[in-house]
């Protein structure tokens, strides 16, 4: 607790505290200013942050460029969607099944893809994600390409997810839980093995660590939290479709993690906020220049990514000054 208070005195700690505070009371703010639309953006930011934090565990801390992380949106989402379509509405059933499915898939993909290195790893994770994408697009019984409308998971007597504010707060609490887990992970012996293997996996192997098994464990954990984000995303839109896990979404997740600052606890959070704010603000900004230009916001966003890749590797986190510990 004392350490927590001490961190509030640094600019970084203050900013994090401020962001979390705004997020904690967002439903109250949007109600007070009558901006319902902002709450739905806020919900999506929180959900994407969970996914970004989970990708950061392997990409940021582990240096494993997984180009298929959005597949867990799909697996978590479709597990909920398929059960819901078969009349099983209970969240107590849906959510554990969805997490279990994500864990199983992550373990399988990890076991195969972690044997490869570099570009091969990027491509094999992408390919496995595409595989699930095409399978979901071929599920005639569950809407195929068009996707599937579902009703939100039910936790009778506990929480009503149809209430937008309650759902938002649930997502927020789960984000806090994910961040807590990630900080424990990053500072544990397990996390240090993963981080060590990022800078030199031969050395870690020589020191006697079974790097492959550690990485597999991290990959699987990351998949579990990715699946959680998928569950929430399916509930947020009350809809699942193959588009949830298109490879562009995987690319977006990588962009978010790098934009925020790889291998930092709150980087994914900054990155998600920046990503959504850019998306929402570039459109009106371009529209100011000329009506209708806003539709083409990616013509500005694309080159921005190039510049970020070339000149801003530390991400937003590095703008906040040096880190302590």
């Amino acid at each position: 607790m004392a350490a927590l208070l001490a961190s509030l005195r640094t600019p970084r700690g203050l900013i994090v505290a401020l962001i979390l505070l705004v997020f904690a009371i967002l439903p109250l703010l949007t109600q007070a200013f009558d901006q319902r639309y902002l709450l739905s953006i806020g919900t999506r930011i929180v959900i994407w942050s969970i996914a970004a934090v989970s990708l950061n565990m392997i990409l940021g801390y582990g240096g494993l460029v997984s180009f298929g992380h959005a597949v867990f949106f799909g697996i978590g989402g479709y597990a909920v969607g398929i059960l819901a379509a078969n009349g099983l509405q209970s969240g107590w059933l849906q959510w554990p099944v969805a997490i279990a499915a994500s864990v199983l898939w992550a373990a399988l993909v990890g076991a195969l893809s972690l044997r490869t290195r570099g570009v091969y790893f990027i491509m094999i994770t992408l390919a496995f994600a595409q595989l699930v994408y095409y399978v979901s697009a071929g599920l005639e019984a569950y809407g195929a390409d068009d996707g599937l409308n579902i009703s939100r998971s039910r936790f009778d007597g506990l929480i009503d997810l149809r209430d937008k504010a309650s759902f938002y707060w649930l997502c927020f609490v789960l984000l806090l839980g994910t961040l807590w887990f990630c900080s424990r992970f990053a500072n544990s012996r397990f996390g240090f093995v993963i981080r060590g293997a990022k800078s030199n996996d031969l050395r870690m192997t020589a020191l006697g660590f079974p790097v492959f098994r550690y990485r597999l464990a991290a990959f699987t954990l990351s998949g579990a939290f990715g699946g959680l984000a998928g569950i929430l995303l399916a509930n947020e839109g009350a809809y699942v479709s193959p588009a949830m896990m298109s490879w562009v979404k995987s690319g977006d997740l990588i962009v978010i993690v790098v934009l925020g600052g790889m291998g930092t606890l709150f980087g994914p959070l900054y990155g998600t906020i920046a990503f959504f704010v850019l998306e929402e603000s570039l459109k009106p900004l371009l529209d100011l220049g000329h009506k209708g230009w806003g539709e083409y916001w990616q013509i500005v966003f694309g080159p921005m990514l190039v510049l970020i890749a070339l000149y801003a590797r530390g991400g937003i986190d590095s703008l906040l000054g040096r880190r302590h510990g």
Partner: peptide, 14 residues
């Protein structure tokens, strides 16, 4: 490779 993925992903959008 990560920088390359990021920058060329930006090029696709562009």
């Amino acid at each position: 490779h990560l920088d390359q993925v990021l920058a060329t992903f930006g090029l696709i959008l562009f």
